[in-house]
Amino acid sequence: MKKRVAALTLAAALLAGCTGADGEIPDRGEVLAYVDELCAEPYREVSRELVAETPDDMEYRFETDRGLHFTAHSYLSPIYIDASKTSFYTPEISCDYVSAVHRLYSDDVKASLSRCPLYREKDGWMVVLQFSDLDAAADAVTKADEIYAAELAFNSPEFLAQHPVASTHLAWYASEEAARAHERWVNLTDLAVTGQNDREALYKELADRYAQLCVDGQITDSTVPAEYLADKHVSRLDTLKLDGRTMTYDLEDNPFSTYGLTTDDYCYAWYSDEAQTYRLVMDVGFATEQSSYPLINREYVRALGGHYSLEIQGDRYRSSWTIGENTWHMETLYKDGAIRSVQVEKNGQPLELDLVTVDEDARVGATFCAGVSAEDFCKLFDLRFEADEPGRTLRFFSK
């Protein structure tokens, strides 16, 4: 029954502001305003024609001062619900100006990319077997850029960056045989031909990305220069340990839900370039009677033989825990699906914590959690830590 109600609600939302097959399409003024947003160069309307009726489709033809022809359409687009076409339509406008610009360069750009020995014309990928191949990849993209750069006489750098004329996927393979079989590759990045890539900056970006994947153990290559490996850290430590015990956050005795805790998705730490240290996730005490949410702090308190309690008053969540002779209090305002404030005290004294939300770092993973540095996490439980990068483990120790 709930699914049926949800489907009807979705259908009502989709159909709001819609029309039938005999409805009106956007007028000429709306079309020209839409075209103006795409086309910055001078143009004129050549003609317009109603190319379909009930539902209507009006085609507008344009020509720029340099002789570039493109079209726009004002039409009714059918609405589909659950893959089934309805009898309702929405007014739409489309314009192929960007495609028309790309047609001026695409053949030459593709030919330029094809001259690179790394390029595979069949799928448009570039195959990298070793670090030295990055030179050829950077050369190929910047040479293709020289072709598309001619468009800067008519459009802004922002336009070219937003609408690359082509892109190629860069992937590492362990061997030529693996590349031919197109198997067991590691994704490096996508390279966009924007007409303005700086060769030196592009190469450095590729080299840093390649070196990072080597540090992370995804690429095996002994030829990477030491300068690119220096000061790099493993991106993610997939195991958290407290006094030698692996923290799995999988206890079933959650008093806030019959479904058990869902904290096993947060048993890792990631390296933050901004903080220059590893971060991991802590909860802010958010819980409801209807659903199960991470209570990560409670798991550490229990593992350390302490006591944890949680009090909920509307949008405010007050957590308290005691370990030995020390007591912590945390008060959080969580409202409208976001953390508004977090205050933590230890033995009555405020703790300064550098917290990030999921909006600031997607690796936090949930709106009701916060990312915290390993150093600050230790402040919550009187711990010390070490990052075991070869072992892919962040180790905490009680003092």
Score class of each variant (00 low, 15 high):
342 V>T: 14
165 V>W: 01
281 V>S: 06
216 D>P: 11
398 S>Y: 02
375 E>Y: 09
180 R>V: 13
137 A>P: 01
393 T>R: 09
373 S>C: 06
300 Y>C: 10
8 L>E: 13
283 D>H: 06
2 K>N: 07
142 T>Y: 00
266 Y>Q: 11
191 L>F: 08
283 D>Q: 03
230 A>H: 08
198 D>K: 13
182 H>K: 15
156 S>M: 08
295 L>W: 05
234 V>N: 02
202 L>D: 04
120 R>E: 07
58 M>N: 13
253 D>W: 00
222 S>Q: 07
100 A>T: 04
310 L>P: 05
227 E>F: 03
280 L>Y: 10
286 F>T: 05
392 R>D: 05
84 S>H: 11
288 T>A: 04
325 E>P: 09
50 L>S: 10
50 L>D: 15
157 P>F: 01
372 V>I: 15
315 D>V: 07
45 E>P: 04
367 T>Y: 06
185 W>L: 07
320 S>L: 12
268 Y>V: 13
182 H>E: 13
81 I>K: 11
183 E>N: 07
268 Y>F: 14
287 A>T: 13
216 D>Q: 10
180 R>G: 11
274 E>D: 08
146 E>W: 03
285 G>I: 07
224 V>A: 00
247 M>L: 14
331 E>I: 12
29 G>H: 09
324 G>I: 14
385 F>M: 06
153 A>E: 09
38 L>E: 09
305 G>Q: 11
76 L>R: 12
198 D>S: 13
325 E>C: 10
30 E>S: 08
73 H>K: 13
205 E>F: 12
271 Y>A: 03
204 K>F: 09
374 A>L: 12
6 A>Y: 10
37 E>D: 09
75 Y>I: 13
371 G>K: 05
234 V>C: 02
280 L>W: 11
64 T>W: 02
378 C>R: 04
333 L>T: 12
224 V>C: 01
43 Y>Q: 00
336 D>E: 13
120 R>C: 04
161 A>W: 00
242 L>E: 01
108 D>F: 00
229 L>F: 12
239 T>H: 13
326 N>D: 13
393 T>P: 06
199 R>T: 04
70 F>Y: 05
396 F>I: 03
240 L>C: 10
122 K>L: 06
234 V>A: 00
378 C>G: 02
7 A>P: 00
9 T>N: 09
29 G>P: 04
50 L>I: 15
258 T>N: 15
267 C>A: 15
287 A>I: 07
383 L>E: 00
237 L>D: 04
380 L>T: 00
187 N>F: 12
369 C>G: 09
310 L>G: 03
4 R>K: 08
161 A>I: 01
86 T>G: 05
370 A>L: 14
23 G>R: 02
21 A>W: 12
136 A>Y: 01
233 H>Y: 00
115 R>H: 02
137 A>G: 00
149 A>R: 10
347 N>V: 12
258 T>S: 12
193 V>Y: 10
68 L>R: 03
99 S>D: 09
208 D>H: 08
271 Y>V: 02
215 V>P: 01
203 Y>S: 06
13 A>C: 06
384 R>Q: 09
337 G>P: 15
272 S>V: 07
132 S>P: 01
